[in-house]
């Protein structure tokens, strides 16, 4: 395991902790897309089916369990704090993302089996799952700082996987084409957000310096 992947996984872990912290302390689901979070439940459950038949390492198993359980917990929290009277900005037709990811999974997979197709589906779905959240962000106009930190940490995780894949290609001769291409797609989806985050958050912090 190389430094890029560890940092990526830590970033992913932190993003979820930030989200849970933000929703439970404010007791509000405002500004968080339930559609994006429900998509992540589908992503993790369909990707980690190999928990039942393949043991990689304790680290791998614990992280997989964490991502499945925490994503379900987030959806539970959002449902608990969701106010029905509130005008929703969560309007993106998420079924397009599911449909598109499924078609891609049927075309690009390492084996035409249920487990392999679901694995590929999870990668494509993850690469675009943040879109409903970005739409909410855009429509709300101003977001809580924690929400933007959450999206940043979540985007950073897959971006850090890219140098990990380059490193593995040179050291191990490994190249997981589906993971790499969907990972690059995911980073492109985040690129606009990264730019705005840099402008708003990083520069504002600098402005506060004496």
């Amino acid at each position: 395991m190389n430094i890029f992947r560890i940092l990526g996984d830590i970033s992913h872990l932190i993003s979820i902790l930030i989200l849970i912290h933000a929703v439970s302390t404010t007791k509000s689901a405002q500004g968080i897309s339930l559609k994006t979070q429900a998509a992540y439940v589908v992503v993790f459950v369909s990707r980690y089916l190999d928990l039942f038949f393949r043991y990689v390492s304790l680290y791998n198993t614990l992280m997989k369990l964490f991502f499945i359980v925490s994503s379900i917990y987030v959806v539970f929290l959002l449902n608990r704090y969701k106010k029905n009277s509130e005008k929703t900005n969560d309007i993106f037709p998420v079924w397009y993302l599911f449909g598109g990811a499924f078609v891609f999974a049927l075309i690009f997979n390492y084996e035409f089996s249920i487990v392999e197709i679901l694995w590929s589906f999870s990668l494509w779905l993850e690469s675009v799952a943040i879109i409903p959240q970005l739409v909410v962000l855009q429509r709300t106009g101003e977001a809580q700082l924690l929400t933007t930190h959450y999206i940043f940490a979540l985007g950073l995780y897959r971006a850090l996987y890219i140098p990990n894949w380059i490193y593995r290609y040179y050291t191990e001769g490994r190249m997981d084409k589906i993971a790499v291409i969907s990972g690059i797609l995911q980073t492109i989806v985040y690129s606009d957000f990264f730019y705005i985050y840099y402008k708003k958050v990083v520069k504002n912090l600098k402005f506060k310096l004496p």
Partner: peptide, 10 residues
């Protein structure tokens, strides 16, 4: 490089 699935990645 050979095309393989990285089973150890999350």
């Amino acid at each position: 490089g050979k095309q393989t699935k990285n089973h150890d990645e999350l």
